[in-house]
């Protein structure tokens, strides 16, 4: 099998590729932050009665909250800020499909490239 000789990349091409990668990294990490996709999906279940008992805290817990500088009013938004685990099937299916599709593509494309590598490496000798 003939050896594959890659083209030499020009300086400008190298700089351009670095720029592509940097932009991709920023888009991937920064865009979800901006679009509000990042972070936890939590919401506050407001309570009318703001006492330690209503917040489900026993005297030991209440004493610790107070030691940490909280009152039932200030602790309310922390204690009642909760996750609501509802399994949203369409999103779950999309997520599973995206993940599986990604891994399948990864392994198949890698295997194609890998065969070239092995052929060239072991047939030369």
């Amino acid at each position: 099998m003939s050896r594959y000789t890659p083209p030499e990349q020009s300086k400008a091409g190298q700089v351009f590729d670095i720029a592509v990668v940097v932009v991709a990294i920023f888009v991937a990490l920064w865009l979800p932050l901006k679009l509000g996709l990042a972070g936890a999906a939590k919401s506050i279940d407001a309570l009318d009665a703001k006492t330690w008992e209503a917040l489900g805290q026993n005297p030991t817990m209440a004493s610790i909250w107070e030691k940490l500088g909280y009152t039932p009013e200030t602790a309310h938004d922390i204690i009642q800020n909760r996750f609501h685990y509802i399994i949203d099937w369409p999103t779950l299916i999309i997520m599973a499909a995206v993940l599986i599709g990604y891994f399948v593509f990864l392994f198949r494309a890698s295997d194609r490239e890998y065969r070239d590598v092995i052929n060239e490496k072991f047939d030369d000798k």
Binding site: L37, M95, Y102
Partner: peptide
């Protein structure tokens, strides 16, 4: 997925 699903999809 429970709580951070959209971020996962964006990353993948």
């Amino acid at each position: 997925f429970l709580g951070f699903g959209s971020q996962l999809i964006a990353m993948v």
